[in-house]
Design a protein around this nucleic acid. Structure first.
Lengths: 335, 335
DNA sequence: TTTAATTACGTAAACGTTTTCGCCTAGCTT
DNA sequence: AAGCTAGGCGAAAACGTTTACGTAATTAAA
């Protein structure tokens, strides 16, 4: 470690006070350009970088934000993080990652552990296991917080989401136009606004086209691959739907497998469509019609909002930013 | 924020010194159980959590590690992070994420920015753009560092890798057993040990089976989807290989697309096999034979090693931990 | 009974910054 | 010549911990 290079060292070598050095490093107007230059060149020469702990302690700024998400190993979230990280770089912020694994207790525990000044702000996509509105109502008063994709409603906080209702409506209409009348729904995120909006869009599209919405079968997501497969197979056997509307990516593999195991041809016997950020959707057998959310953009947008808040910039206007998803029609719906 | 709750506050309310409070919180042997209990209950009551900056500053421990990787939005890395994060939770560590986008300057800049005490240790999977051995030779003396998957060799640091040579050899033999004799190689990570080992395994398998290794065509990876597609198409047209050995996941989409555009049937006209952590490999059309690395395990293993070092535990024996990849034969190689 | 050891706690310095406040000098203004 | 202003800098406190060291009271050893 040699002798540490800190402000004191710089001050000694330059025969000036540590206050002057600190101010010079922060480009304060109090310091003459001449002195600043002396400080800057020596700092560069000695490879000086300020100690973040000391700086945090004194200034109460950490230049760090936390991202709290259910799981990193998910196309949507890893793309979001990519977006967040890119913006964080531009603003010179550091990014901490926390995975909740859809566990609300873990979510609360992580969040609480960040309130002691470890981070300046939080980006979060909440767990689907429960809806603890009270907790977040209090939380948003304590720390700058931006929600993305999976949000709590009616809170005084920025939320970045997508047009779940509209795109689900549109996707359902697509299935109807393809001749489907028995459209089963694979239901995920049922506790969250996003999940409810998707389901609502689906139901309303059915109603609009005179299809009895309440007769359509629904399979709810379980955190168990085998179980989902089982449920979908039962669904296919008992209701013989002509389409599956999958509201989350996690249903794709069990849905495809179920059809194969039951010898149902996609799209002839049953059409499939899913929310998904899978890059290989077009390579599936058959290629999959998807609703893909702009995950990367969501991450970027959410991060930008947070940094604006942290830098006391005025947010353009709205607290709700809604990005558009895109429906890509492929073979699995006969296109 | 109300009045901040810190050690001083606890000390006042309990009529003891702040030193006693600090020691009690850290469960020091110097403090009686009675006093500890008083401190603990009040701390819980007031929701006290220690200020990390102050703690870091004084103790030089951050309980934080950094993960430096090329990109989060990649199946291998997102799975690795998932593993790292899980272990970090167990040890009570926080995880910072940095993406290099395969840019060696960014990699060096990030790493340097972490040397001022921001983190206790670093987990890294290095950029493929260049091989700056000198930098890392110096770095490992400055901070605990664990490499995973993409490593620098001949360094005094722990490295967690996979059996790239052996599995590439085995996969090549699989192609040969399927009757292939003109096996083109889609070459990624050529600057790194992992990339070289894969290529060497491929070449040696060819030689072992009496196939002229130096006559096999090679396409090197470019950071441009369109270009890779173009090159593969040219390869297919000019050399008419009967198999493609893809050494990285990024070649899958262009390879499949190239075959489709040129009306080549997989696996009849050309067989394909790829290193990949794609969860949907079995759903591709046709399903893809893969070599999948235990990404999640690699992350876990690497993190465990780092935390052992940070806790001054003896590492079991070796600095090189080598995990096994698995070859899954599917339709794309005719299985 | 004296001395040594142990237990339980307090004092104060230290970690490396940022920031308030005050001082000094040079250059103006009257 | 006296008074002002502004520019440039330094002294010192503060941020919330941890920890080396000291000390008083109690217990154990002699």
């Amino acid at each position: 470690m040699a002798e540490a290079v800190n402000i004191k060292r710089l001050a000694q070598e330059l025969n000036i006070s540590i206050a002057t050095v600190s101010k010079a490093l922060n480009d304060s107007y109090e310091i003459s350009l001449k002195t600043k230059n002396r400080v800057w060149t020596l700092a560069k020469e000695l490879n000086y970088t300020p100690n973040p702990a000391a700086s945090n302690l004194r200034s109460h700024k950490t230049k760090t934000v936390a991202v709290i998400i259910p799981c990193v190993a998910n196309n949507f979230f890893s793309l979001s993080i990519k977006g967040i990280e890119e913006i964080a770089r531009q603003y010179g912020y550091h990014v901490l990652i926390y995975q909740t694994h859809e566990n609300i207790e873990a979510e609360v525990a992580f969040t609480n552990s960040l309130l002691n000044g470890r981070v300046d702000g939080i980006l979060t996509s909440v767990s689907s296991s429960e809806y603890n509105s009270e907790y977040y109502t209090n939380l948003v008063k304590k720390i700058p917080l931006v929600f993305f994709d999976r949000v709590y409603e009616n809170l005084d906080a920025v939320k970045v989401t997508t047009d779940d209702y509209e795109i689900a409506f549109q996707a359902t209409e697509h299935l109807i136009e393809c001749g489907c009348t028995k459209i089963a729904y694979l239901y995920g995120l049922e506790n969250l606004p996003a999940g409810k909006a998707r389901f609502a869009g689906y139901l309303d599209a059915l109603k609009t086209h005179g299809i009895a919405a309440d007769e359509q079968p629904v399979v709810k997501y379980q955190d168990d691959e085998e179980l989902n497969l089982q449920h979908i197979k039962e669904l296919l056997k008992e209701y013989k739907p002509d389409a599956l509307f999958s509201s989350i990516e996690e249903f794709i593999i069990p849905a495809y497998c179920a059809c194969r195991e039951m010898d149902l041809k996609i799209p002839d016997d049953v059409k499939i469509l899913s929310f998904s950020n899978l890059s290989t959707a077009k390579l599936l057998s058959p290629s999959l019609t998807t609703i893909s959310q702009p995950a990367f953009e969501i991450g970027r947008e959410a991060a930008k909002c947070l940094f604006k808040i942290l830098n006391n910039k005025q947010l353009d206007d709205e607290q709700n930013i809604i990005l558009k998803s895109v429906l890509t029609k492929r073979e699995s719906t006969g296109c």
